[in-house]
Simulated scan of single mutants.
Amino acid sequence: MDPGLTRGLAALVWAEQHGGGQDTKEQAAHIRELLADLAEQQDRSTRISQIRAEIRSLNLQLASVQARLKRLGGPGMATAVIRTWAKQQGVPVSVGGTLRPEVIDAFELRLGAQAQQHKKTITIARLQTQITTLLLKRTAARARLERARDDTPPASVIRTWAKRQGLDVPDNGLLSQRIVDAFKAHHRPTHTVRQAG
């Protein structure tokens, strides 16, 4: 570890425990808040990287499954065949959309030896189910990425600002949305409009 950093951390601990006066302890508390902010930013950056990697992986899987489906000739009538069979057999099935895996399994199981004749239909239906699942996972990952990218600063920054504004905030734990909104409103950039002429 960098000797300067080690010395600085030792000084921080000293200031918190034995510091000369109130100013020293306040400086130590401020430094501690800044370090906590950096740690939160690092965690957020790591989360964003992990989510991006997950989305890339899902995109690759999706492309692979879609290519496989295309090689088989596309969705065609596969779901219609299985859906019609399910209705005739009294197996609960949706009117449209992706077939549930249980319906495809039932179709394959009940056909027994004839299942081989419908192998392509079964494979296409399973691929469509995989595509739907991957799309749902990708949508969820994109939503998590947007939340992780949220530009709301760490709670410690908002807490410090709120205390300086004389607002009543807890020393730790969640901040109320009212406080977060007040912080954002206070720090929202103001744009001045120039008059023409």
Rank of each mutant, 00 (worst) to 15 (best):
D2P: 12
P3W: 06
P3L: 08
G4C: 05
T6K: 15
T6V: 14
G8L: 13
A10K: 11
L12Y: 05
A15S: 15
Q17D: 10
H18M: 12
Q22C: 08
D23E: 14
T24P: 02
T24G: 10
K25R: 14
K25Q: 10
E26H: 11
Q27N: 14
A28H: 10
I31G: 08
L35M: 13
Q42H: 15
Q42C: 09
R44F: 02
R47F: 02
S49A: 15
I51Y: 03
S57A: 15
S57F: 08
Q61P: 02
V65D: 04
V65R: 09
Q66I: 08
Q66R: 15
R68K: 12
R68L: 02
L69R: 02
L69M: 03
L72K: 04
G73S: 08
P75G: 12
M77A: 13
A80P: 05
V81I: 14
I82F: 10
R83D: 01
R83E: 05
K87N: 03
K87D: 00
Q89W: 07
V93Q: 04
S94R: 15
V95F: 10
G96W: 14
T98W: 05
R100Y: 09
V103Y: 06
V103C: 04
I104V: 15
E108Y: 04
R110M: 13
A113V: 10
A113T: 13
Q116R: 07
Q117T: 11
H118M: 08
I122R: 05
T133A: 11
K137C: 00
K137I: 03
A143F: 06
L145A: 02
R147Q: 09
T152Y: 02
T152W: 05
P154Y: 03
P154N: 00
S156G: 10
V157N: 02
T160S: 13
T160F: 09
A162N: 08
A162T: 08
A162P: 06
R164H: 12
R164A: 08
R164Y: 08
Q165K: 14
G166V: 01
L167G: 02
V169G: 04
D171T: 10
D171A: 12
N172W: 09
N172D: 08
L174P: 12
R178D: 11
I179F: 01
V180H: 02
V180I: 15
D181S: 11
K184F: 06
K184H: 12
K184S: 02
R188E: 12
T190P: 01
T192V: 14
T192L: 07
Q195N: 03
A196W: 00
